[in-house]
Amino acid sequence: MGGKPACTLGEVKNRADLIIYWGGNPAECHPRHFTKYTLTPKGKFTPNGRKDRTMVLVDIRETPSARAADIFLQIRPGRDFEVLTALRAIIKDQPVDPERVAQTGLTLDQLRDLAGRMKRARFGVMFFGMGLTMTRGKYMNSSAILTLAAELNAFTKFIAMPMRGHGNVTGADTVLRWTTGYPFGVCFNRGYPRYNPGEFSTIDLLVRGDVDAVLVVGADPAATMPQPAIEHLKRVPTIVLDPKVSTTMRIARVGILTAATGISAGGTVYRMDEVPIPLRPALRSPYPTDEEVLRRIRQTLAARTDE
């Protein structure tokens, strides 16, 4: 059993009366989320904006997002899966073990109250962040929250969506999926796409030293990746395209400054709900766009192969 009940953010704006953030800190990480999509906007069926909505925050610590919440539920680190499992049982009127609930840092009454709100909501939504997906049991946690949302659809409308990262991660994922069938971690060394996260994802390839050249576009792996991966970036010819001199560019063999996408280069960004938004550059840049540079590299390579 598994589900992926999602919607575009306008559905949340127009309809959601119960908004739950789980393991994320939107007030700091996605500052426009509250005002543009979820809490304050007056939507078609939420004419009073914030007054028509209840917000719940579930997290292991009281972040600034808690101030925006009507209800803050502080759970013990690593206990998300137990809480989600208990909620799945409560909504189906199945018994739950009070001792296990006690270990989560929440009381059974708190969970019953939340389950009741979920079932009574007209339109409920759960946004889940890295606090849920990057901690102990990350795959289990994502699966549990998605399944909970899917099961809630037996009672009312319910959605669950991950809060995706910054930049155009969703766009890269989307394009790779239509060209290869897979979202990331795709290997072409046999002449066709193969997918195996853990084997073909960037960090694994670098740490194992499986690649002999690296092209980095619009990312700064040297700022975030583990040291052995960075060491390999230094060892092999690494080419970086970036609008600024990034940490990775400093250790790279070749750095090419490019126009900043969205500021002086156009294109399309895919929002976290996969809605494509065109970017209209407002300024001119002395630098070429990423696309131009890549095209020229490709043309040069093609000309060499023809020789």
Binding site: M1, P5, A6
Partner: peptide, 24 residues
């Protein structure tokens, strides 16, 4: 959603604001 309940397997849903829906 009904087909998901009948099969009990996997379900994807994507409602598009003001326009339409989508199920997998």
């Amino acid at each position: 959603y009904l087909l998901y309940q009948l099969t009990g397997h996997k379900w994807g849903n994507m409602d598009i604001e003001n326009e339409t829906g989508c199920g997998i």
